[in-house]
Design a protein around this nucleic acid. Sequence first.
DNA 1: ATATTAAAGGATAAAAAGGTCTTTTAATAA
DNA 2: TTATTAAAAGACCTTTTTATCCTTTAATAT
Lengths: 150, 150
Amino acid sequence: MLSRASKYAILSTLYLAEHASKEKKMSVKAIAGSINVPSPFLAKLFQQLVKCNIISSTKGPNGGFFLTEENEKKTVIDIIEEIDGTNKIDDCFLGLAKCDGNNPCPVHFIVEPFKRKIFGKFRDQTIKEFADEVEAQGSVLFLSGLEKKK
Amino acid sequence: MLSRASKYAILSTLYLAEHASKEKKMSVKAIAGSINVPSPFLAKLFQQLVKCNIISSTKGPNGGFFLTEENEKKTVIDIIEEIDGTNKIDDCFLGLAKCDGNNPCPVHFIVEPFKRKIFGKFRDQTIKEFADEVEAQGSVLFLSGLEKKK
DNA sequence: ATATTAAAGGATAAAAAGGTCTTTTAATAA
DNA sequence: TTATTAAAAGACCTTTTTATCCTTTAATAT
Ligand code: FES
Ligand code: FES
């Protein structure tokens, strides 16, 4: 449904929202380490996210990545569409050309409500709002999935 | 979530359940044409499905693929696990090492109920039951997704 | 028996996804 | 102004997934 690339991008953008700021920028390596993602791969993703204004960066000493107020208004859907080129959340679960109540696949009426819910969340919440919620509910952003948030 | 291969396998097995029988076997080409899938690729998938007793075949004139009563008792999960090697439905939507209520990713509580529902359906309904339901509700099995069932 | 038909088997090929490395550019601290 | 730092850019490499082709085997209709 989502490529690994877009999953990395989502998690690390949320991580930036939580842990970085204009005053405390973070390097790819630091984030890659925290999220447990191959850093050269993440570096490529970050280049793309900077270019399309989802995250920001500066070079040099104390340089790194962070989010501006403008960045914080982007959405998870923006990330997915940028990285995956298209938004595969909308695709039919069984691969039909289009997901459509008039030509439903055998699981359409189970899948469709879920898609509405998650798509709505990804579209209507800004990164900032999403990150705040993540922090409030203590959700995990580490790919290893084993660490505990304190 | 599901590979294209397992989607093809699911759709064509359901198609076999609806349209083929011991008396009226169907060739790969016929099915590939109906479902709109590359036929050499489907042929390979069918070899695998035959080997693990999810579908049946005979060679020669009037040969082809069909389901025995035993085949009809298999489940969609059996297909997925055979073709994809593993069942990725259980995976975390954002890629965490495991999907777990104790270490939930930011969308876990939206995703988890859906996974339970679809996994339950795929595990508890036999192919035969599934296919009957598909027929009753007039669900579509054509990948092109445009044809109308009459 | 023989020709014909359709699946099985096995070897490749093409495309996409995932990941790495090296050089260049820009910011800044000394 | 120079050395250092960290991102940008671009060229590769690897693995996995998807797809094709060709030869062999087995069933059957004649
Ligand atoms: S048609 Fe398959 S999920 Fe909607
Ligand atoms: S932890 Fe991510 S979907 Fe359950």
